[in-house]
Amino acid sequence: MSRFAPGARVRVRDAWPERSAPMHLRTPHYLRGREGEVQRVLGTFPNPEAIAFGRPGEPRPLYHVLFEHKPIWNEGQEGDTVMVEIFEHWLEEA
């Protein structure tokens, strides 16, 4: 079961676990702490943070999340966007 539906406002966790231990993360650093909108539930996939180290990857819901471009970089054109696959355990309600 996925926690967020299309249209939900979400925030990417402002977490930096790679600073304390070697990690394999699929959440781009430029989105940490950023708010976006869920576009689509893409399905459930084994957690890459575990399988990268040969551990069993429990299934995690994956979302396509849309972000405004300009607030991320403080430059660019109004209305441009970036859409990124984010795993559920990296998202919180905004």
Binding site: P28, L62, H69, Q77, T81, V82, M83, V84, I86
Partner: peptide
Amino acid sequence: KIRVVDSTAD
């Protein structure tokens, strides 16, 4: 408008 799609996962 441009929509960049960053292919980060599966």
